[in-house]
Design a protein around this nucleic acid. Structure first.
Lengths: 246, 246
DNA sequence: AGAACGTTTCGGTGAAAACCGAAATATCGG
DNA sequence: CCGATATTTCGGTTTTCACCGAAACGTTCT
């Protein structure tokens, strides 16, 4: 894509809202995206069309529903990296505050990011279950007890053509955490075991009681950052969604 | 800055032309930028205003001339990285061809990039005058004969607060080369010694005969990539500047 | 088949903004 | 001080495009 073309696409609030809504990696139907962007369905439809033509998102039809999703992990990291590296305007107003629940734990496309994502990667490294290398992480050749215990099949992951465990430098934390097929599979396992739960509203993630035990006992993580925010006991699907800040 | 705001700024051909014209790191007067963008001075002036307010460029007044330049190396790498990572539109037209003279050797803000930049960094590493590390390069503690011979003062560079020799992953080559205060000082020395010459039209760089000797004899570089393009014996300031592709 | 629903296409409106001519401002060189 | 040059500000025109109402299209449900 052209630089100008890309700029035009992300130079408009509604389209950015759509992209940010998709940053969690889940596909969403057109009307939901229209709702989150705060525009009529027709308007969103044309935006979705442009984003698709630009190669940033793609469409999966499912009956009468049209699900849209990011065109790939590269697009997600492109946007995250961009948001991370934008210069602070000198005299002007500073960057808007990051939502606390996004800062502490969120999905970055298909793997975990935020303080939790960084902490997990650190914990795995500390346990010798992951090695920090120059461009990416590396998994131990013989696997690791931790992965067996949660039922991950590393051999299957190695066969995929996708990068196994590249480093992703966090937008909010500016620290590396593990991405790629391993990062995605690990996050998936965390969901399966009920250690984390996705928010229905955005890409933030809540750590369950079982998750707290797992992370603190198996990975020795310090989860104090989770207590900073006032705990919301039961998160309901909100009818009004405030505009997403990345 | 805001994601949307940034997108709006680079979502317009004239403003992108201005930014690309400044990517070489040299400050240019307003009228020159208007000329390169192909718009009237008044139009360029308003664009320059917006880019300045967005923190992407800054102004240095010099008498009746107003010189504009990129706000810093971070902005340059932001744009280079962005251009590098943009997705290819699937069915659509592919990315425009890179100009050969930009591909082979160019300035990236204040250091050398392109095939020449990558080759130099490689050559320095091969000579033991530079070490490739995780996030950045490293210089030998005792300096190196090469730097003495070209008159570089490494001690002075170490005192600057700017990063000494970070890695910059090339937009066209997708390979690391050396940036930072060292990268800038090295490029400056190459200019001083007449090993390279800047194009007056864009940020491309020509290697002189003396430069060829230096690079091939001192750094053992294979400079065959310089012969791919039809040599332009004397590059004149062109009156008509074709639109810059990044 | 017909109603209901999600989505897209079409057409028109209104607002934003890219652009330039003219005039204002600032500096330089006599 | 005056004319020349570089740049910006102001005003007005034109283009672009975000937006939504209405209608068309496709799928599901009954």
């Amino acid at each position: 894509m052209e630089l100008t073309e890309f700029g035009r696409l992300i130079g408009q609030e509604s389209r950015v809202s759509i992209l940010l809504a998709l940053m969690g990696g889940t596909a969403l139907p057109a009307s939901e995206l229209a709702y989150r962007a705060g525009v009529a369905n027709q308007t969103a439809s044309s935006h979705l069309n442009e984003l698709t033509r630009g190669g940033l998102i793609r469409r999966r039809k499912c009956g009468r529903y049209h699900y849209y999703e990011l065109a790939g992990g590269e697009v997600a990291s492109l946007i995250e990296n961009l948001a991370r590296d934008l210069p602070d305007r000198k005299g002007g107003k500073k960057r808007p505050r990051i939502k606390p629940e996004l800062k502490s734990a969120r999905f970055c496309y298909d793997h975990l990011a935020g303080e939790l994502g960084v902490a997990i990667s650190r914990g795995l490294v500390a346990k010798g279950a992951l090695f920090l290398e120059e461009e990416s992480f590396r998994l131990p050749d013989n696997g690791h007890r931790i992965y067996e215990d949660i039922g991950m099949d590393l051999a299957a992951l190695r066969l995929k053509k996708r990068k196994l465990c590249p480093r992703c430098v966090d937008w909010s934390e500016r620290l590396p955490h593990v991405a790629g097929s391993f990062g995605a599979a690990f996050a998936e396992k965390m969901l399966e075991h009920g250690f984390i739960r996705r928010s229905p509203n955005n890409r933030s993630v809540a750590v369950t009681q079982a998750g707290r035990s797992f992370f603190s006992e198996v990975l020795n993580l310090d989860l104090s950052f989770l207590n900073r925010q006032t705990a919301v006991p039961e998160e309901a699907r909100r009818d009004f969604l405030p505009a997403e800040t990345i």
